[in-house]
Write a protein that binds this DNA or RNA. Structure first.
Ligand code: SF4
Ligand code: SF4
Lengths: 145, 145
DNA sequence: TAAATAAAAGACAAAAAACTCTTTTATTAT
DNA sequence: ATAATAAAAGAGTTTTTTGTCTTTTATTTA
């Protein structure tokens, strides 16, 4: 198990893929996205429906329809995608899963975790969705399994 | 969902608890540990059997039996506990779950993740199991939900 | 307006994780 | 030796996550 849920991994890979494939204003269909990031098609469909409701991606039905992103969304931080799918537990929660702890009576790892989750949050806040388009175009990076 | 599995959270809390309750050379039973860290008793029992097989905790059966830790184990890093339960995926694996990526053709987040997982690993390597005994004794920190 | 297209929605199914309950085995003390 | 104790082991159930399949709705083009 990594830091993110599988669902969230697919979500991240798909927004990278959509951003990369639609920067010219076109749209890309679910089948192409699914094969492009090697994810189960119908499972990904659910995820994209979710992201669509939450405004992370846009979609249109019918012929020549598909998913795309507008310029303002492209500039949003990756943290928005993670929060939409996995919630903010990764940023606000803690490693040991206690709920009734406090700053004055924390678990032993409290201070250590504060640093880690701050690192993660800052990384995801400074990373924008579109910033990898260049490398993806060049084939330097990949999203397939 | 936090960084660790629930199983791993219980494991960490229980080793802290056992370390804290047996530093005088005594033993502590499963019931007391379970209530002490507010975890399901029989579920925790499985986890401790596992940790016992892997040498993280010691145990003796029968009257006045229970779990304890020896001095050398007390000095081991928390990373050993995490690795015993969740494996080394958190340290070696990655955020996007790809398997056929490489340094030369990584996913877009590769470099970002390298920093994060290094942070986590270093934190868990420098944290020893016994180092919180003092604060637990003083009641400054707690392990109960 | 009809046919084709593609996402949205709904209903399941499989796998993994989390949790419960019972029986067995080892140890100790009487 | 026997009874009491406490961990180990085994056999489940429940819940959550992940994945599949089918039907419906919206849009476009002919
Ligand atoms: S004290 Fe901090 S790290 Fe520990 S359980 Fe509470 S919030 Fe989490
Ligand atoms: S490139 Fe790095 S971060 Fe990306 S999937 Fe591979 S190992 Fe993980």
């Amino acid at each position: 198990m990594g830091i993110f849920s599988k669902t969230c991994e697919y979500a991240i890979r798909s927004v990278f893929f959509i951003a990369h494939r639609t920067e010219n204003g076109s749209r890309v269909g679910i089948k192409e996205i699914a094969t492009g990031i090697s994810s189960p098609e119908h499972f990904l469909a659910k995820i994209l429906q979710d992201l669509s409701k939450k405004g992370i991606v846009k979609s249109v039905k019918g012929p020549h329809g598909g998913f795309y992103m507008d310029e303002s969304t492209l500039q949003r931080p990756l943290a928005d995608v993670v929060e939409a799918i996995d919630g903010n537990g990764l940023f606000t929660g803690c490693g040991l899963g206690l709920v009734s702890c406090s700053e004055s009576k924390p678990c032993p790892l409290h201070n250590e975790f504060k640093v880690i989750r701050k690192n993660i949050h800052e990384m995801l806040l400074k990373t924008t969705i579109k910033e990898f388009n260049g490398d993806l175009n060049l084939g330097v990076t990949n999203l397939k399994k």
